[in-house]
């Protein structure tokens, strides 16, 4: 197995783990963490193709930096949302937050 294959396999596995967290677990915090894991998987792909791909991948590295910054912003807003939802509904199960007007 070449290093590129290995990186891509790890990335796919991480993505699927994140997907499990999003689809199976109904907890809002775990859903957000799952999304973070999926973003990490995407970052890993960028780095893999920069390092082991056919060249010209410097843009990928820069993109990973942006992606990390956006993921941090997403986490901050997401957790604020979780806290706001919890204040309204006294629960953080995603299934419970199904009304538009609180």
């Amino acid at each position: 197995m070449s290093p590129l294959h290995l990186c891509l396999a790890l990335s796919a596995a991480l993505f699927c783990t994140g997907l499990v967290a999003v689809l199976v677990r109904g907890n809002a915090i775990l859903v957000l963490l799952g999304v973070e894991l999926m973003l990490n998987a995407a970052n890993l792909n960028f780095i893999a193709f920069w390092r082991f791909g056919p060249g010209g991948g410097e843009a990928g590295l820069v993109f990973v930096l942006f992606s990390i910054a956006v993921a941090a912003a997403e986490a901050a807003v997401g957790m604020a949302l979780v806290i706001a939802v919890h204040r309204h509904l006294r629960t953080i199960r995603v299934a419970a937050a199904n009304r538009l007007k609180g």
Binding site: A73, E74, A76, V77, A80, A84
Partner: peptide
Amino acid sequence: VALIGGLLLA
């Protein structure tokens, strides 16, 4: 924007 938005939401 995310920082301010997070503050307002929470």
